[in-house]
Computed example of a mutant assay.
Amino acid sequence: MKPATRRLGASLALAAALLASAAAIATAEDSELVIFDWSGYEAPEFHPGYIAKHGQSPTFTFFGDEDEAFEKIRSGFKTDLGHPCSQSVVKWREAGLLEPLDTSKIEGWKDLNPGIMKMKDLATDESGTAWFMPWDWGNTLLTYNSEKVSADDIKSLKSLADPKFKDRVSIGDNVDDAYALASLVIGLKDWTQMTDEQFSQASAFLREVHKNVRLYWTDSTEIVQALSGGEVDLAWAWNDAAVQSAAAGAPIKNTRDTAEGQSTWVCGYVRLKGAPGSADKAYDFLNSVNAPEVASFLLSDWGYGHADAKSMASIDPAVVEAQGYADVEKFVDKTLFQAPVPVTLKQKMIEEFEKIKAGY
């Protein structure tokens, strides 16, 4: 059985437990390092060096989205490392939740992708202080059942609102991905400058999509199961949804060829202020996830790029091309990068998206 298939089976078994708690503990192993992460990233293939050195994995707890994670940490939840994405880093930092990174202890720091590292307000602030180690990057893009949906029906992201797909659509229960989708549809590539009129247009489109939505997926396990099981035929989902579904034998594909494009995000690791565990083990973990074999697993089994350019360069070119990363310029063409948005705009998005999901 392929690793992706094994992971999918394990994730499906885990899903029920995750419903009971937003911070369910998947593996209570090394108590000296607790990582607050997305479900699935506890896979030992992501940190083999840590296991080799310490004899076990860290302890992992999970969140459904970054806003949930932010509120939990702000309310006093203690953890050592977190895994937010590009659109949330500034918010977490300005809220005083983060501890600066000592880049001298991160072996692959100088090998991180230059294009990612130069993005404003991401890895470092204006003073040069590092707060975030970019690690995984990829897309939210149109994903579909190739046996039920024709290529002619998915030339535009607007297909998600086409009445012919009523009750056959799923988008993430994630405000960032939702408004990235809507921004692309209204022709907006830089959502940090969204006007009130554009916000209204984007929200109106999401209301049209809502009419077709069968479910708002909360994690990769749920959307993979929905697509593979035939519950939905069209989705706005992350790269791994198609990769894992195909590994399980389902006819699920994604496309970057829509008229409006796709959304690109970068996620990575941060140290939390007041972290109760071992700082040395935190850096051991950060070093372990930057290894070449980890980049290969991330790309081949999840469909995501690795931020360590040196590790990416070590991967079989055929695998890189198969996942669409051979031409980075083409990869990010027609894309909306999920950069941090102003706090007031983000709060508007959160409040409006809740109304949309409730049918208002």
Rank of each mutant, 00 (worst) to 15 (best):
P3Y: 02
T5H: 05
R6K: 14
L12Y: 07
A15Y: 05
A23G: 13
A24N: 10
T27V: 14
D30N: 13
E32G: 14
L33T: 02
W38P: 00
G40K: 01
Y41L: 13
Y41Q: 07
Y41P: 07
A43I: 09
P44Y: 03
Y50G: 11
A52E: 10
K53N: 06
G55E: 08
G55C: 11
Q56L: 03
F60Y: 10
F62P: 06
F63D: 03
G64V: 09
E66L: 04
I73G: 08
R74A: 15
G76M: 09
T79M: 02
L81V: 03
G82M: 02
V89E: 04
G96I: 13
L98F: 06
L98D: 08
P100M: 10
L101Q: 02
T103R: 14
T103V: 15
W109L: 11
K110C: 03
N113A: 12
K118Y: 00
L122W: 03
A123Q: 05
D125A: 14
E126C: 09
E126K: 15
G128D: 08
G138C: 14
T143L: 12
N145L: 12
K148W: 01
D153C: 11
S159G: 01
P163A: 06
K164H: 01
N174A: 13
N174P: 07
D176T: 15
D176C: 13
A180Y: 04
A182L: 09
V185A: 03
T192P: 09
M194V: 11
D196G: 08
E197G: 14
L206H: 04
K211M: 05
K211V: 03
Y216T: 02
T218R: 15
T218L: 10
E222T: 09
E222A: 13
Q225A: 15
S228M: 10
L234M: 10
A235F: 05
A237P: 06
W238M: 10
P251Y: 00
A259M: 00
E260R: 11
G261L: 04
Q262A: 09
S263L: 02
R271D: 01
G274E: 05
A275E: 01
G277D: 04
A282F: 02
A282G: 10
F285S: 07
S288K: 07
S288H: 01
E293I: 08
S296F: 02
G305K: 08
G305W: 01
G305S: 08
S314G: 03
A318W: 02
V320P: 07
E329C: 05
F331R: 10
K346C: 06
K357H: 09
